[in-house]
Write a protein that binds this DNA or RNA. Sequence first.
DNA 1: CATAATGCTTAGATAAGCGAAACATTCGAA
DNA 2: TTCGAATGTTTCGCTTATCTAAGCATTATG
Lengths: 175, 175
Amino acid sequence: MIETNILAVASRRSEDDIVSRIDDSLIALRRIMLATELYGKELASAAGLTAAQFRALQIVGEKGWETPKVIAARMGVSQATITALVDKLVKAGQVSRERSERDRRQTNVTLTGLGRQTLDDAPDALQQKYVSEFEALADWEQAQIIATLERVATMLDAENIDASPVLTTGDIKHH
Amino acid sequence: MIETNILAVASRRSEDDIVSRIDDSLIALRRIMLATELYGKELASAAGLTAAQFRALQIVGEKGWETPKVIAARMGVSQATITALVDKLVKAGQVSRERSERDRRQTNVTLTGLGRQTLDDAPDALQQKYVSEFEALADWEQAQIIATLERVATMLDAENIDASPVLTTGDIKHH
DNA sequence: CATAATGCTTAGATAAGCGAAACATTCGAA
DNA sequence: TTCGAATGTTTCGCTTATCTAAGCATTATG
């Protein structure tokens, strides 16, 4: 019985190892998500918007306009939700609605001057810490981080949803 | 003028590089967050709960009980929000409220048998893909991923919020 | 041309979240 | 010891986010 116990302990140990490693990686992922979520809230409220409104505004800001359907897909919510969100953004003067000329079923949610200004002003809070620390890293470290993040993202992706940067990097260009 | 242009192009190129690298890393981060958010929703609805309710349940499940104050801190929301959330979980039979003996201002939110069962059953959907792929990696790769994730988490952490795994790893033990 | 498909909005509902105030309990002086 | 401050939770009133189902244009298709 002694030998069997030793074996049992040995095999048990390696399973504990993998469990704790998965735990470690999930804890780190959780920290990343929590930090980003809190940053997002902070950023949004600094701009006088809610987090969801700000996310939508950022998506619109990428090209200057976007359709509700695409915004909904990008945010992983229904179109009806976007209608309400855009209502708020229109009321706040951040975007406007314009009927598409090509296909008049479509609505283009278009960034206003104020919306552009909001986006230009706001990102600093969010990115400052990450961007500046990331910039300070050596080339190979940056490359390695990107590779690892992409790898993790791929491991997590069930379907491949196109996720453009919600955290825009516009601010760094002004340095 | 030709030389100056060459120099200008050279210096410009390196700045574009860093911008695009930050973009790459933020895109990957965004993919990670989106995937995790969607997983979370899926997982919760499989358990017949909402994402927020499930997150709270997971926190309670770690020790078997927890106070509203701690749950609120861990989830980054106000205590008032937790009161409502716990109401729902109590109504669903997943947890119960019990006055603390030590300090009767405190309430212990305690996992019920049903709650334990929900947690034991549910995680599979969420973790399967990530866990199985992660397990398949070589030792050094796992270690490297953890190191990188922790590094990124630290770069993002403004304050150091304690984030235990919201994605529990219980299921892997049943293999 | 009629009908299906598409894109968006409306309507009605529930959940999540907040701040302020109310309550009960414990702690800390004076 | 007793009274006021601090603590932990809940209640209240309100806003936002979200969903599904249904409705309304508009475009595409057989």
